Simulated scan of single mutants.
Amino acid sequence: MIKIYHNNRCSKSRLGLALVEASGKPFEVIKYLETPITIDELKEILLLLDIPAIDLVRKNEKTWKENFKGQNHTEDELLNIMVTNPKLIERPIVVNNKKAVIGRPTERINDIL
Rank of each mutant, 00 (worst) to 15 (best):
K59C: 06
I109L: 05
L79G: 02
L42S: 11
H6T: 15
F68I: 10
N72Y: 15
N85Q: 15
K59S: 07
L15F: 12
E61D: 11
A100W: 00
A100T: 02
E107P: 02
T84H: 07
E66P: 04
P52A: 12
G24P: 02
D55F: 01
W64A: 08
E90H: 13
E75R: 03
M82K: 04
R9V: 14
L113H: 07
T63I: 10
E75T: 05
E77P: 00
A53Q: 00
D50G: 08
N7M: 03
N110S: 10
K98D: 13
I30P: 01
E90T: 14
N7K: 02
Y5S: 02
G70K: 11
V101Y: 00
E21T: 09
L48Y: 00
T35G: 11
R104C: 06
D76L: 05
I112T: 11
N67R: 09
V83E: 03
S11L: 06
K62I: 12
L113Q: 05
E28A: 11
V101P: 00
L47C: 12
L33S: 03
I39E: 13
K98A: 13
K25Q: 15
K87Y: 08
I81G: 04
E44S: 05
I112W: 09
A100D: 01
K43V: 10
E90V: 14
Y32N: 02
I39A: 11
D111Q: 14
N72W: 14
H6F: 15
K3I: 14
L78N: 01
N8E: 14
R104E: 06
L15S: 10
G70W: 13
M1K: 11
I2C: 07
I109W: 02
K62N: 11
E77Q: 09
K43C: 08
K65Y: 13
E34K: 05
R108S: 12
V95H: 01
E21N: 07
P86K: 06
G24H: 05
K69L: 10
N97M: 09
D55G: 00
H6R: 15
H6Q: 15
K25R: 15
K62L: 12
I2W: 08
A18D: 12
A53K: 00
T106E: 03
T84K: 08
I2Q: 06
